Computed example of a mutant assay.
Amino acid sequence: MALTLYVDTARWRAHQQTVLQQFPGIVPVCKGNGYGFGHERLADEAARFGTDILAVGTTYEAARIKDFFSGDLLVLTPFRLGEEPVPLPDRAIRSVSSVDGVRGLVGARVVVEVMSSMKRHGISEEDLPKLHAAIEDVRLEGFAIHLPLDRTDGSDAVGEVMGWMERLRNARLPLHTMFVSHLKADELAHLQQQFPQTRFRARIGTRLWLGDHDATQYRGAVLDVTPVAKGDRFGYRQQKAAGDGYLVVVAGGTSHGVGLEAPKALHGMMPRAKGVARAGLATMNRNLSPFVWAGKQRWFAEPPHMQVSILFVPGDVPAPQVGDELVAHLRHTTTQFDRLLDH
């Protein structure tokens, strides 16, 4: 009995091909938990469609993935002086976001990240003149810019990239390759047309692996079903059942990522109102689970356990049976499955 990730493999790969056609020279990203699929699976998929490079989040991820992927490995987290050394093959490429970082990687293959409107990390315009001497001692693979997802100020993504292209050109820095993140296909094509001497390579993870929501589905197996009457006590904290119904024990708990939720940026009155409502219900121990039965997400009977969750199914709904599987709406990047089944 397991929490299973089902993959409609043909559909999933067909979506990959659509993205590959839209973004020539794509750099697939495999970081974190491998977007819910695992590093080994995504490395295999990337090799399958023939990419020459795979982007990973950290040096530790690169050290693990190097045994699954034989091409270049682009480490996205910038190098920092004094960081713990991790043995990596020569095909590893380090991102750098400072002149000191470049100087600390003598002989290495590097991609220089420029500061975008994300304001997360990157070389500033003022530091560009200092790069000339620094890049002489490294193998420069290109520059990179990581753009924001939303532009609430009405600014233009293409304009931001073009601005940096002009700054780099004016600083007489080599512009043979520019790695970009969060650009649309038509925006990338426009940039390629404007700067034909530069190869633009889109770093893409979410859109590539998770862009077709219907290609994957999590399901948790039902392990036990116990009838309860209103007022019956149950669980670790011996709470009282709110009404007649069933306690349904389903595979999938905190060790799988069930019940974990990242903070969200809310825009508009309706999303904020819903957030307030959810917070209010939580103070009354009412938390909606990701598991669906009889067409509705069901409430947690109590907070999820390490490997299972206990749901409350009201008595006016047919009870699931042991061995049934409940669809679970889970976030891929925070979920760890017990098994993956292609179908």
Score class of each variant (00 low, 15 high):
Ser95Ile: 08
Ile93Gln: 03
Phe68Gln: 09
Leu76Cys: 02
Leu74Thr: 04
Ser98Ile: 00
Ser98Pro: 01
Gly104Val: 07
Gly71Pro: 07
Gly71Val: 09
Glu84Trp: 07
Ile93Pro: 00
Lys66Pro: 01
Leu73Val: 14
Ser98Val: 05
Glu84Arg: 15
Gly104Leu: 04
Ile65Asp: 00
Ser95Pro: 01
Arg91Ile: 01
Gly104His: 06
Ser70Arg: 13
Val102Gly: 02
Leu105Phe: 06
Val111Cys: 05
Phe68Asn: 10
Thr59Pro: 06
Asp72Val: 05
Pro89Asn: 14
Gly82Cys: 09
His121Gly: 05
Gly71Leu: 11
Arg64Cys: 11
Leu88Glu: 11
His121Ser: 12
Val102Tyr: 02
Met118Val: 02
Asp90His: 12
Val99Leu: 09
Glu125Asn: 01
Arg91Asn: 09
Asp72Ser: 15
Met115Thr: 01
Asp72Lys: 14
Gly122Val: 00
Phe69Arg: 06
Arg103Gln: 11
Val75Cys: 10
Ile93Asn: 01
Asp90Met: 10
Asp67Gln: 15
Leu76Trp: 05
Arg103Gly: 02
Leu76Arg: 03
Ser116Arg: 01
Ser95Gln: 13
Glu61Lys: 06
Asp100Gln: 14
Val112Cys: 12
Asp90Glu: 15
His121Thr: 07
Arg64Pro: 00
Ala63Val: 07
Lys119Trp: 10
Ser124Tyr: 07
Ser117His: 01
Ile93His: 06
Met115Pro: 00
Phe69Gln: 03
Gly101Ala: 08
Leu73Met: 11
Arg109Pro: 00
Ala108Pro: 03
Arg103Lys: 14
Glu113Trp: 07
Met118Gln: 09
Val96Lys: 08
Val110Gln: 01
Pro78His: 09
Gly104Tyr: 04
Ile123Lys: 01
